[in-house]
């Protein structure tokens, strides 16, 4: 099994480079583009001197490489910094939050907030169970919908199953997730009252967002599955299997499905991973679902650097790990892929 070890070491080393690169990219981007998070944090009423002092305190006036090295040094110890805006109790502490009368109290609140800002890890950890549940349900719905249809279409090229898959795929991929979310909220929750949504008060709140995710992911899997099965059917071992006396069902189940699972695995590593992450962000935001995605979108809109960075590292690491696992699994199915 020296191969597995070599493979893991090589790929993990590559993965670390990628995650570092991602972090640096986001890190630089956040600091190069105009707009001062301290200004947003403290609100427009604060004097420039206070803003500067606060920025100094947060280390935002040092050079970018300096900040980056400091950040990485802490990050490897598990310290990803603290959110600028989210308090320990989970309540957002932005200046924008207090629009509408409480302007005078802002300064006091900010001073308190300084003491109790939530750690990035905590922000992520609070949301992660919800996000994992949503992603898991989304994937489950996707597979339930896409796998039978994709297999049927692949085995029956140019027949009605294929056309149905083509049609469903084309329509589903044309439904923007945020719009679909709105329509589902309107029809299922508001009008029909069949399923709850908006926020999270129980398991039922996961279903609609998960459906939105599934509609976004299913076309990719349907297409990929039907294509790779159709391709596998062209292989020599299929026509060869017939004359060798293998039953058709056995050819399909043991050989065609096995071989077409490799492109599917790759799809999962590259496309599905990315789409799932992106989809989670948007659906969580629209459904006001309390996961990591919602926190991230809010963090980005508020320029909450530490949270964005933390989530970016997390997302990149998940994708990198998913890809390594997928490639390793592929090499076990097809030994030629030993890369």
């Amino acid at each position: 099994m020296a191969f597995v070890l070599t493979f893991l070491i090589r790929r993990l080393a590559q993965g670390v480079v990628i995650v570092l690169l991602v972090t640096f990219l986001i890190f630089t981007l956040l600091r190069v583009i105009p707009g001062d998070p301290v200004r947003i944090m403290l609100g427009p009423a604060t004097t420039q001197a206070v803003v500067e002092a606060r920025a100094q305190e947060l280390g935002l006036r040092d050079s970018i490489p300096e900040q980056f090295v400091r950040y990485i040094a802490k990050a490897v110890q598990g310290d990803f910094g603290e959110s600028y805006f989210i308090g320990e109790t989970g309540i957002a502490l932005t200046a924008q939050n207090v629009v509408g009368g409480k302007g005078q109290d802002t300064a006091t609140e900010q001073r308190e907030a300084k003491m109790t800002r939530a750690g990035v890890l905590k922000v992520i950890a609070d949301g992660l169970p919800y996000t994992l549940m949503l992603a898991g349900m989304g994937l489950l719905f996707t597979l339930l919908m896409a796998v039978p249809l994709g297999i049927a279409a692949g085995l029956n090229q140019e027949k009605w199953q294929d056309r149905l898959a083509f049609f469903i795929g084309s329509v589903f991929i044309s439904l923007p997730n945020f719009w679909l979310a709105l329509v589902l909220i309107l029809l299922i929750t508001a009008r029909a009252g069949l399923l709850p949504s908006i926020g999270y008060k129980g398991f039922g709140y996961v279903i609609l967002p998960a459906i939105v995710l599934a509609v976004e992911l299913a076309p990719i899997i349907i297409r990929g599955l039907s294509m790779s099965i159709a391709q596998a059917l062209q292989a020599g071992y299929v026509s060869g299997g017939i004359v060798r006396g293998l039953p058709w069902r056995q050819i399909i189940v043991r050989h065609v499905l096995r071989n077409s699972s490799i492109p599917m695995l790759n799809l999962f590593g590259v496309q599905i991973g990315g789409l799932l992450l992106g989809g989670v962000f948007v659906t969580e935001f629209v459904f006001d679902y309390p996961g990591v995605g919602r926190s991230t979108v809010q963090a980005v809109l508020q320029r909450d650097f530490p949270v964005i960075q933390g989530v970016a590292i997390l997302a990149a690491s998940i994708l990198v790990l998913a890809n390594i696992m997928v490639d390793l699994a592929s090499t076990f199915i097809d030994r030629r892929l030993k890369f």
């Binding site: 020599g236 071992y237 060869g240 050989h255 096995r258 071989n259 097809d334 030994r335 030629r336």
Partner: peptide, 9 residues
């Protein structure tokens, strides 16, 4: 001969 059998088994 190269393609007559399943390459993964």
């Amino acid at each position: 001969p190269g393609s007559a059998l399943d390459p993964t088994i």
